[in-house]
Amino acid sequence: MSLSINVESQETHVSIFLAGQVDTKSAPELLETLTGIGLPELQELRIHAVELTFLSSAGLRALVYAKQKMPHSSRLILVGGSEEINATVIRTGLGTAVTIVSSIDEID
């Protein structure tokens, strides 16, 4: 299954909608997208994962890269990830850097 990436830039944040799977083959597409959205000035990045079926360590590394490039006070939010994807993020210790919510209604 391939990966579909859609980016929406809002005044206060950027949303990236992922559909399909982020694996070794497709992760470079995600990384390329991330490098093009102005991470050093971005205060909030929302990764919409409702239609994401798989996230490999290459995908996790892309999230780490994004958060490291964003300002210290910024937020990286994973929205609607599956139970397995959320558990993987937490298991690798990234749960402290990534805010996990089930829907955008939970974002304050």
Binding site: S57, V64, Y65, T88, I90, T92, G93, T96, A97
Partner: peptide
């Protein structure tokens, strides 16, 4: 065990092997 290193200091290497062993 879970790596609780702050994200700013997090090294990228080793994540894959950790996932293999712990999955």
């Amino acid at each position: 065990s879970v790596d609780d290193t702050a994200i700013e200091s997090r090294k990228i290497g080793g994540l894959g092997l950790f996932l293999i062993k712990n999955s």
